[in-house]
């Protein structure tokens, strides 16, 4: 199956996500027939089987989602969403900041900047539930965590401060930035699940 992957291009780490998905598709042998492109307007979503919501500044991205009339279309988007950092904040049902209107697609409560400021940002090898090939080298930049997750949400990884990786249906949400490391295993896992879901 071919997959069309959109990357929400309002603000943040957009080109790195595009490159990472292209690398993942190549690793999976789907590089030639699938497309990865930027999404800015509601109409762009119709072409997507999957959407990445990148890291960036969650207050800014939230505001631009409203400005660009993307809130409702994102809430009703039928494909899978791959959300990192600020993206994870937006996927939650509740966040510790009233200015951010979340999409509520994953039942979890998220704290922003849960590890602190930039000087507390870190890299670490963390275990991911069910991921073959050993720990994942994760890059946390002013990262959020989930303080609480609802029933039916699969926790993939947890640290002292809270949950840093979850899966729910076709969606995956991560506190850290897999698009900044060379490892595409999480992108591949997301795509594989999406394709398995669609073919059944």
């Amino acid at each position: 199956m071919d997959v069309n992957i959109g990357v929400l291009a309002l603000q943040g780490n957009v080109s790195e996500h595009i490159d990472a998905f292209r690398r993942a598709l190549h690793m999976m042998g789907r590089g030639t027939s699938s497309e990865v492109f930027e999404v800015r307007h509601p109409g762009d979503l119709n072409k997507c089987d999957a959407l990445a919501i990148p890291g960036g500044e969650s207050t800014t991205i939230s505001r631009l989602i409203e400005k660009n009339h993307l809130h409702e279309p994102l809430c009703t988007f039928s494909g899978g969403i791959f959300a990192t950092c600020a993206g994870m904040v937006l996927m939650a049902t509740y966040v510790d900041d009233v200015r951010i209107r979340t999409l509520g697609l994953i039942d979890m409560v998220v704290d922003r900047n849960a590890f602190g400021r930039q000087k507390e940002s870190f890299e670490a090898d963390i275990p991911i539930e069910g991921l073959e090939g050993g720990p994942f080298h994760a890059i946390f930049i002013r990262a959020p965590v989930a303080k609480w997750v609802g029933a039916g949400i699969t926790v993939l990884s947890r640290m002292n401060q809270g949950v840093v990786a979850v899966e729910y249906g076709k969606h995956m949400a991560l506190s850290f930035h897999p698009e900044l490391s060379c490892d595409t295993r999480l992108h591949e896992r997301f795509l594989k699940k999406l394709c398995d879901n669609n073919s059944t």
């Binding site: 780490n13 790195e16 960036g56 930039q118 000087k119 670490a124 890059i139 930049i141 900044l180």
Partner: peptide
């Protein structure tokens, strides 16, 4: 996770932080 397994202030974290500002004011 033990604190000594975390790495702070690396080049990747610095450039990664800058990268998160893209498309912004």
């Amino acid at each position: 996770m033990k604190l000594e397994e975390l790495r702070f202030g690396t080049e990747l974290l610095k450039r990664g932080f800058a990268s998160m500002q893209k498309g912004g004011v």
